[in-house]
Design a protein around this nucleic acid. Structure first.
Lengths: 234, 234
DNA sequence: AGTTGGTGTGTAACATGTTAGATGTTATTG
DNA sequence: CAATAACATCTAACATGTTACACACCAACT
């Protein structure tokens, strides 16, 4: 018997193996974060499997991953539900996000090249256009993309994926808030301040601005809880 | 048909459902981090299943989770291996760790009660005893426990779990380094400096000390790569 | 000798069958 | 009528069967 080792002849860069469970994961995650599936809603694995034309296995795998990410709640032998919003978990996620992104932005401010900054500014341009058009969805996507760009610019392999995962709770909340209050103009101004600080190679200022930017969400959250208490847990 | 909702009558505090996949996960994770299973080693799901007396399903589930955590590498249709050490991934994990722990320690420094600090000092006492006895394993465990204590003291639900997960790469490396170099005396001094800064309610100093403390690992890592290149990837 | 193509083998991915347990409902009993 | 116990039902957890694919090996050809 020949043992196979994880030897050099493997393609070193992980080929994006798009297995079915990955596809299911992506679809469900998107559906949850975009609030197509509401917090507290039941997920029927068998039904999902049927709808997507796969068996229960890849659906279960995807849902396990989502549970790990805190986007679904699995009650053994009972049921699976889209995770409700838990204020204390959101607080933690917020903390982690601030910690990671301010650290990332410090690094980015130190090492940003003109090309990187140009990419940032290009994103900001498009944000401005979206804000002018009152295109919430587009604006929101660009917002996320900007945070990803900043992460990437820190030059750390896999950091974006980690940050994105830890941010998923927050992203979902923000998406919900989008329908109640927008703050597009203010947000855009904050983004511009962050990028300016990076361009000025001023890590402290960049980090502080980012922190203030992220902190904005708190009060809106309480507002949402008053309007839609059914989305929240505890 | 009666739909069940995730209603109030669910036990609100998640009962620690110890499913088989959780048990398998815990066992394998422990084995990997403690280097019972070496980086690069093949994992045969079927064999593991047989050894643990379960079917392939819970083993696969556990391994998926470990892959998510970066502790195993799954090559579709080919094989599963204990993850090798990738310097760039370790660098990222290190970055995340510094970001999270310095942020946590800032919060902890602000809100630490005398009882909390007493717990820290108690841990330090035991570290000193372990250092005196040259008991590496014990010292290492207390080290991890101290970091957990600091996380908990930040008062954020679930932060310890997140930090612990992001730290798993690092923990594994440190465990390996334990056999080559110890730095117990220096490490203990660093820990004491951190706790003192917390007790003095000096968040900046605490954070800086923590950062320096964590940064120590870099050079030892290169040393390890020279001695045991087979553990590393790329 | 180096390259190409066919073939075998082993594994993860996937499909589906089975079990155990949590909950809601109903019957039963005081 | 309330408390409780038996029962039905639904689901995730678990087991096992099947498929597709990546890789190694070897032969044939250039």
């Amino acid at each position: 018997m020949q043992l196979r080792s994880p030897s050099r002849n493997f393609k070193e860069q992980k080929v994006v193996s798009v297995t079915r469970k990955d596809q299911v994961y992506t679809i469900l995650r998107q559906a949850i974060i975009s609030s197509q599936l509401s917090p507290g809603e039941t997920i029927r694995k068998e039904l999902v499997a049927a709808q997507l034309g796969v068996s229960r296995t890849p659906v279960s795998d995807a849902i396990n991953r989502l549970a790990d990410e805190g986007l679904v709640e699995i009650y053994p032998q009972t049921g699976t539900f889209v995770a409700r919003l838990w204020l204390d978990k959101i607080e933690t996620a917020q903390f982690v996000r601030v910690a990671l992104e301010t650290a990332a932005i410090r690094r980015t401010a130190e090492r940003a090249t003109p090309e990187t900054i140009a990419r940032f500014r290009q994103n900001l341009e498009r944000q401005r256009k979206a804000a002018d058009k009152q295109d919430f969805e587009q604006f929101y996507e660009l917002d996320e993309a900007l945070h990803d760009l900043i992460c990437d610019a820190a030059g750390l392999v896999g950091l974006r994926e980690i940050a994105s995962k830890e941010r998923s709770q927050i992203d979902r909340v923000r998406r919900l808030l989008l329908h109640y209050e927008t703050r597009m103009i203010e947000t855009l101004a904050e983004h511009e301040a962050i990028i300016s600080a990076i361009a000025d190679k001023d890590p402290d200022k960049a980090a502080k601005t980012m922190e203030a930017h992220i902190a904005q969400m708190g009060k809106m959250l309480l507002h949402l809880r008053n309007k839609r208490p059914e989305l929240f847990g505890s």
